[in-house]
Design a protein around this nucleic acid. Structure first.
Length: 372
DNA sequence: CGACGTGTAAC
DNA sequence: CCTTTTACACGTCG
């Protein structure tokens, strides 16, 4: 079945929203930052307008780097107000829902839309739908977005990247091969620096070389699953449906005011994070079975420790489990100093109407039914 | 197979 | 000089 899929990507979303509500920064390059709080400018850039990008400022960059690039220029640096961005995002997604047969929100500023039905399988009709979306987003929220249209999510996503900001790129099924021809593998969605380097070692530099490469050799290097996935993508094939996914995990990270290996000092931060995670789990009405603590040492190396228990939605269960995991980790790694800590709950189950963790009944007397 | 820890990727 | 959140795959162990 031939599909028509849109990928809608809001342009430098956070920075654009701040521009809209602060008249005084309009026209200036705008940079949205996550301040970690250990020194005045410690932290990273989260979003930058295109004017800021012209100066070389990019998301992910340390704030001090960005300030150096901004030098004597008049650049606005603002902190992240995620609550506000989420409110606007929710309104945006409502607009998109009205314009699609099915929607899959992939992040606060991105969504896939299946418009196969309402476009009548017609690419020009799909383009008109996209133009309508761009107009509504502009009229109703004052924002621009970039839209890619393709026969699947992979091609739609890569098409939306092709022209931005305020772009609209259509790649019909008949144009996929041409669209991917001679593209460096790194530009294929899902291939980052490590995979690109591994492919390079096999002499593979472009997407078409990857598509034609002997699968057996790819499997030796990447394992069967990833090898097949890589080659499917290189051919522009992606059969995954546009569908809303249930979250699999909830996590929160934070940076310590100063490096530490002291259980109590670290635990203060853990308490904040646990409260956040519990609130979010309550909001989503889920319980969890697995609790993890994520530890980033001063060398920025990540360590995780986790434990699976009976389903719960209780904050004290998190604190109790994390405390024992963390205490054990610090014992076993004497001398290590931690910079950042996080907690994660996973193995999620939806609570039932009585507020009892669903899945818990399995542990209450009846025994395990229906399991082979 | 489930649980656990690590790595990759994208936002 | 360095954020945050989520997903997923793989190896290993018992």
């Amino acid at each position: 079945m031939q599909r028509i899929v849109l990928h809608v990507d809001l342009d430098s979303f956070y920075a654009s929203l701040e521009e809209l509500r602060h008249e005084d920064i309009r026209g200036k390059p705008v940079v949205i930052c996550v301040y970690s709080g250990r020194s005045p400018d410690s932290g990273a850039v989260r979003s930058a307008t295109y004017k800021a990008r012209q100066l070389g400022i990019k998301a992910g960059m340390p704030i001090v780097f960005a300030k150096r690039l901004a030098k004597d220029k008049d650049v606005a640096f603002l902190p992240t107000d995620i609550e506000y961005y989420r409110t606007v995002s929710d309104r945006m997604m409502e607009i998109l829902e009205e314009e699609a047969d099915a929607i899959q929100q992939v992040s606060i500023d991105e969504a896939y839309l299946d418009v196969t039905g309402r476009s009548g399988d017609d690419w020009d009709a799909a383009r008109k739908i996209a133009e309508g979306i761009k107009r509504r987003v502009k009229d109703e929220e004052g924002l621009t977005c970039s839209i890619g249209i393709g026969p699947n999510k992979l091609i739609a996503k890569m098409a939306s990247e092709r022209q931005k900001p305020d772009g609209l790129t259509v790649v019909k099924d008949t144009q996929v091969a041409e669209f991917l021809r001679n593209l460096p593998v790194m530009e294929l969605y899902g291939i980052g620096g490590k995979t690109a380097e591994a492919l390079n070692e096999l002499g593979i530099k472009t997407v078409n070389e990857l598509a034609e490469f002997e699968l057996k050799i790819l499997e030796e290097k990447f394992g069967e699953n990833k090898a097949v996935m890589l080659q499917q993508r290189a051919k522009g094939i992606d059969d995954s449906p546009v569908e809303q996914k249930e979250p699999q995990q909830i996590s929160r990270m934070g940076t310590l005011k100063e490096d530490s290996n002291n259980l109590e000092a670290i635990f203060g931060k853990i308490r904040e994070l646990a409260a956040d995670v519990t609130t979010k789990a309550e909001k989503k009405d889920v319980s969890f079975r697995t609790i993890s603590v994520i530890l980033i040492d001063t060398g920025l190396k990540a360590h995780t420790r986790s434990e699976t228990i009976q389903p719960t939605d209780n904050m004290d269960a998190i604190l109790k489990t994390v405390k024992s995991l963390l205490a054990r980790f610090l014992e076993e790694n004497s001398g290590i100093m931690l910079r950042r800590v996080g907690i994660r709950v996973s193995n999620l189950t939806h609570n039932d109407e009585r507020g009892i963790p669903r899945g818990l009944d399995k542990y209450l007397g009846e025994g395990k039914r229906g399991l082979s």
